[in-house]
Design a protein around this nucleic acid. Structure first.
Lengths: 233, 233
DNA sequence: TAGTGGTCTAGACCACTAG
DNA sequence: TAGTGGTCTAGACCACTAG
């Protein structure tokens, strides 16, 4: 063993038992001592692994008693909202699927408060972590000569940064909407998952200083990657 | 010293420097070794303190280099969405301010899709952490004979649990909306802060299995308590 | 009282950074 | 190479739980 870090062995072993249903909501986990004896790993390291699971909301600790499996996570999610840091540290894990100029749907016209015949730039990107496909990200921006269509800008830009040519970042107001959704056919295909699996859907809308919408974005994360690094600047 | 835990000394010392502006965005923090020497605290404990700050998004670590202050947190927030766990561990830190039956505002009629003359139960609660007043929480529920007006139920119930008499929890669909807001006069008074300070506003809407809205909630957290434990079940 | 998690130390070795 | 953070151990003592 020990190809991986020892504390990750703990994490993975316990996570597997939890996710397989072997350990159910409210069940007690093996004690730290038991885990030490089972694995031959030292206490600090066992604790570090347990801390990861506590931190991720899978389990909780009760002093004097033990660790217990937490309530179901179906409607339970954690977000770490900081687009810049995500982008900074994993620039190569965002890839552009395509960029298009489209005639907007009715919904989009409403969302972006568009005048008739105004077209929209669609930027579709995929977020990955190594080999794993995590999320699909679509940005919608009313088309104008200043629209960010240079690929290089798109790869690294956070949503608000796409507008810095026109607007000071300071003036951009954001609005977020979060819900639980399911993968549609297209998403399932791109993310190589099955249709209908749960996703966390995050909508972002950017407004200028006059409260006019200037951009609309939808990021959909596969539900199993409940620890989300999303886009907020 | 050492009235508090040693790792909290580290947390508080560094947090004060960051929040006072002495350490600015991008600045390097003292190294682990330096912190050990400055405080006489052992390395593991210093690291535990630093881990808290990393976890809370204040700083980040770069192996081989050091710890750095993260980007501004003005539009940057972290949520830990798990109402039950919050309630479990801090039941006495939620207090009811008042419960009322009101004639709903226009906005509320729209949000809850109310028929004319339907009244609404308003439950106003305050969330505190020790002496610190953290958040204001308002729930709006269409009035009916089954509305949860027994005080005991209110203290401990999470938002979806308020409906378990009528609906299976499983059938309740939730919708969240997050934005950055500012304290109004009432909130400033209750939370003992100044008017206009930034708050994170979280709206929750619950729907039944037919997508009819059955509850609407707004929780507003003082912005400085960026580590939010909110209400999602 | 025995068992459990919480805090803390001292020390070791590794991986990465930057001159 | 010197300095930094990352992982890990063995051991100590404390606080809490529950019989």
């Amino acid at each position: 063993m020990a190809v991986r870090n020892a504390y990750l062995e703990i994490v993975e072993m316990l996570l597997e038992r939890i996710q397989s249903g072997e350990l159910k909501q409210g069940d007690a986990l093996p004690s730290e001592k038991a885990l030490m004896e089972m694995t031959g790993i030292g206490r600090s390291t066992v604790r570090k692994g347990l801390a990861v699971l506590v931190n991720d909301g899978y389990i909780h600790a009760v002093q004097g008693k033990g660790y217990y499996v937490r309530a179901e996570k179906s409607h339970d999610f954690r977000l770490y909202f900081n687009e810049t840091s995500t982008i900074e540290t994993s620039a190569d894990s965002i890839s552009i699927i395509n960029v298009d100029i489209i005639v907007p749907s009715e919904d989009l016209v409403r969302e972006l408060n568009l005048t008739p015949n105004r077209k929209v730039v669609v930027i579709k990107r995929m977020i990955t972590d190594g080999e794993t496909r995590i999320a699909l990200d679509c940005k919608y921006i009313p088309y104008s000569a200043k629209s960010p269509v240079v690929e290089k800008e798109l790869y690294n830009a956070t949503f608000p940064q796409m507008f810095t040519k026109e607007k000071a970042l300071f003036d951009i107001i954001k609005n977020l909407k979060i819900s639980v959704d399911r993968t549609d056919e297209e998403m399932a295909k791109i993310l190589r998952t099955r249709e209908g699996s749960p996703v966390v859907r995050i909508e972002q809308k950017l407004y200028d200083e006059n409260k006019n919408p200037i951009g609309f974005g939808v990021t959909r994360f596969l539900g199993q990657y409940f620890k989300i690094k999303a886009i907020s600047e």
